[in-house]
Design a binder for these strands. Structure first.
Lengths: 95, 95
DNA sequence: AAAGTATTTAGATGTTTATCTAAATATTAC
DNA sequence: GTAATATTTAGATAAACATCTAAATACTTT
């Protein structure tokens, strides 16, 4: 959970998540949206992947990244808790 | 907004928010919950305060800290956005 | 006004992190 | 199998950050 919050603390990584909410993208397509080198973006993608916020699948020479909203539910629940609400987001696990 | 996410990236600061969700506390009472020095906790409180996540009021020789959930709404809305939902948390401002 | 309690400020230190360049790995096409 | 494209790994560097000790500030009580 701490890793998730740390992953979200970087603006580049949050923008990557914003991009992926619209469509799945390859590592290169993601990198094209930034003025950083591909290795740097690759590092950010790896950070996000380790937390489970995104997942990837190899398609030929490309690696396609996509959002995994499951983890978001956990974070949201923490927020709901702090905000005194008893509302909880229902995750895929307990559907 | 970036400052808020960075503030939330530290486990000590998140625990402080958890403590304050139950009751307002003085700086010293907050520090008592941790095994760190008071200056360190004071620094964390200042970080949280700068983002607006908490607020403080001086009461005699004590400084009483309390949650400010307004800022939480903004963060929650970002999450809602990534999760494709059009649900938005209504802040005090636009009540 | 002196002593005691509460909190913050200042300055130092070690660790973590974001970024880069160069090189390595993997896939496709000729 | 060599060249071209896509992505990651490795290693280096500079900036940011969490923490500490020592000192300063502020309030209360006697």
């Amino acid at each position: 959970m701490n890793e998730v919050f740390k992953a979200l603390a970087d603006p580049t990584r949050r923008k990557i998540l914003d991009l992926l909410k619209n469509q799945d993208l390859s590592a290169g397509e993601i990198a094209d949206h930034f003025e950083m080198t591909k290795p740097t973006i690759s590092h950010h993608l790896n950070t996000l992947k380790k937390t489970g916020l995104i997942q990837d699948v190899k398609q030929g020479q490309f690696v396609i990244y996509s959002l995994n909203t499951t983890v978001f539910h956990d974070v949201m629940n923490w927020f709901m808790g702090v905000m005194q609400s008893d509302y909880k987001v229902k995750g895929e696990n307990e559907k």
